[in-house]
Amino acid sequence: MRTKLILIVTALLGGTAFAAAQTAHSGHGDGMDHATHSQGQPLQNTILTEPGQGAFAALSEVVRVLEADPDTDWGQVDLAGLRAHLVDMDRLVSDTIVEETELPDGLSTMATGDADTLATIRRMVPAHAAQLAQDHGWTVEAVDAENGVELRVTSGDPSVVARIRGLGFFGLMASQDHHREHHMMMARGENAHAH
């Protein structure tokens, strides 16, 4: 009987400890329990600039800007649309298979992938090609193919050709620093070159 009583007490104490550990999240150190965040405790003079995973961080930053702007039209805000675009950006970088072919005057890239990735490529590459084309130092063409999209970027200037080749597909897709403005337009429900 005494052994049963000891087992019951041990189980109860173990369950209480497990519940406490779950509340505090395993892996979180002192001061990292989510319950303490709302108690106004300072973060020991540390100001973080990255609030987590990339898409979450981008959404968090946009929300902060929208909430700080008294003119935000909350009836037009489209954070779900921005999230879908951020998912596309992640899929483009993570899942796209690219074959690059050097041309005498630039680079031809063929981007392909599974069905979801191909849909992403077809949404993003032509739209970004139009953005790239605003740089008059090169000529940009996006051609839809059966199994992907070809992005062809060329120039008559050898230094620009070197830049094109150095950037490659992913560098070209990240080129032309318009992404933050584009994301704010999407979040506000404005037409942002239809990605």
Rank of each mutant, 00 (worst) to 15 (best):
E150T: 11
S108C: 08
F170Y: 14
D90L: 14
S175Y: 01
T139M: 07
E141G: 00
S155L: 06
T154G: 14
M173I: 13
D71I: 00
V149Y: 06
A142T: 00
V77Y: 12
T96A: 04
V153D: 12
R123H: 15
D73V: 09
P126N: 02
T117Q: 04
Q131A: 11
N147E: 05
T154M: 08
P104W: 12
V149P: 10
L103S: 10
I121G: 00
A174I: 11
E102K: 08
S155K: 05
V153S: 14
I164G: 07
G113M: 07
P126R: 10
V149L: 10
D88S: 05
A127P: 09
E102C: 00
I164S: 04
A111V: 06
L86R: 01
D105V: 07
S159W: 07
H136F: 12
T96D: 04
T139Y: 01
M173L: 08
A127L: 03
R123K: 09
T117I: 05
R180N: 06
V153Y: 02
F169Q: 02
V160P: 07
G81Y: 09
V125G: 08
L167F: 14
Q76R: 14
R180K: 15
R165N: 03
H182E: 14
G113F: 06
P126D: 08
Q134V: 04
E99Y: 12
E100F: 03
E181H: 00
W74Y: 15
H85D: 04
L172W: 12
M110Y: 08
D90I: 08
M173Y: 03
G171V: 13
P126I: 02
P70T: 15
P104M: 01
A111P: 03
R152D: 07
P104T: 09
V161D: 12
G113R: 05
N147G: 00
T72M: 06
V149W: 04
A130I: 02
P158M: 12
T101K: 10
E146A: 06
I121R: 00
T139P: 01
T109Q: 04
G148L: 08
A145P: 01
A129W: 03
V140Q: 07
G166K: 08
H182P: 10
S108F: 00
L132W: 09
A119E: 09
V87A: 14
V77T: 15
Q176W: 04
T109V: 06
T120I: 03
A84E: 01
T96I: 08
A127M: 15
I164V: 11
A127E: 00
S155Q: 05
G166Y: 12
W138V: 09
E146R: 06
G171R: 14
I164E: 09
A80Y: 12
V160N: 09
M110T: 09
E146D: 15
I97Q: 03
G148Q: 03
V87Q: 15
A142P: 02
V77F: 11
A130N: 12
A133M: 08
H183D: 14
W138Y: 14
D105G: 11
A174H: 14
H179G: 13
H128T: 03
V143T: 13
T109N: 02
T101S: 10
R180Y: 13
G113E: 15
A84Q: 10
D71A: 03
L118T: 05
D78N: 15
M110W: 01
F169V: 05
W74V: 15
R123L: 13
V143Y: 00
P70V: 11
L118V: 08
T154S: 02
V98G: 02
H178T: 03
V77D: 09
G81F: 10
